[in-house]
Design a protein around this nucleic acid. Structure first.
Lengths: 157, 157
DNA sequence: GGGCTATTACTCGGATACGGGGTGTCCGAGTTAAAGTGG
DNA sequence: CCACTTTAACTCGGACACCCCGTATCCGAGTAATAGCCC
């Protein structure tokens, strides 16, 4: 899985802790974790295209969350960064070569694709069931001082 | 996900339908679906290392299943081909840069890694719960003539 | 004809190239804040 | 002092290289069947 997913998730939580009042530039979000600024920008663009964050150009510009954390699921972020296609894609090799059966006998889905699809569905179901707000709550339980630290570090000079 | 997983799964089912009496060369398994023979051989080697199939060299050599389909799970095959590491790996960026908190405050797992881990656990759980025999059963319901076709095509000259 | 040996053909196994997608970077279009200027 | 204009700095957005891993291939080590040969 792409490394950008981790960056995007952390950035979303950071944005939430900073608050919706002001927009935060990608460069500043990147500096907080010493990430390549331009590349993080690329991931945030993906989030913007997916409608998870909104972006404004110019001075005092940057990114901010488009809606509350409780309305953003892990699935939303993963789909935005990784793309919509499934991890396991069936190439229908059962229809290739001498092993191919009669032409009309492939109406039903390949049993292997079905089985792998069920597993991937379980994965997606779990991703949908968890919102970023759930993650934030757990994070604050583990590190109660983190929100204040972040708010302070991102405070304008 | 690697394409080899699909090839490996189909090959395992084919091996089961052929029967355990004789070993089947990788080249023959590949020809059945018009796959690159040498590359499929590589995947079968991975299955052999994982103990899913056994391999014998020389004339009349090839691969055969090491145990019954009901004792091989989808997880076994995926782990053998894809490797054991998780898809989402946490790089602990929370400990990098100015955002890093006090040194001893990272005993607990990163909340984001935990959430992604739960999703991946659901995926793995589903893969473990399905054996190749379950898949075979469904496949035979959809295409009852397949086993006989395969047995015949792989029959020795 | 039977048993032993040498040969030969066949298969796996790992070492070796190639190519596409993730990774990383750079520069331009657009925008807004701020500075400058005249009334 | 205030309003307007001009400037300038800042930010996103997409276009451009790099590199690693999945993809694909080839050749050698090992093995067993087979053919040949001697008894």
């Amino acid at each position: 899985m792409s490394e950008g997913v981790e960056w995007a998730l952390h950035s979303c939580l950071n944005l939430a802790w900073i608050g919706p009042e002001r927009a935060v530039p990608a460069a500043r979000l990147a500096a907080y974790h010493e990430l390549p600024a331009a590349y993080l920008n690329k991931q945030l663009q993906a989030l913007a295209r997916a409608g998870i964050v909104t972006s404004v150009s110019g001075p005092k510009g940057g990114f901010r969350l488009a809606r509350g954390l409780d309305r953003i699921t892990l699935m939303d972020v993963v789909a935005a960064v990784e793309g919509p296609d499934e991890a396991f894609r069936c190439t229908e090799i059962r229809q290739q070569g001498p092993g191919a059966g009669p032409a009309g006998s492939y109406a039903a889905e390949c049993a292997i694709a079905g089985a792998m699809g069920r597993a991937e569905l379980a994965w997606r179901r779990e991703l949908v069931s968890q919102t970023l707000d759930d993650v934030r709550e757990r994070a604050e339980l583990q590190a109660p001082t983190a929100p204040e630290r972040i708010r302070e570090w991102f405070a304008p000079a």
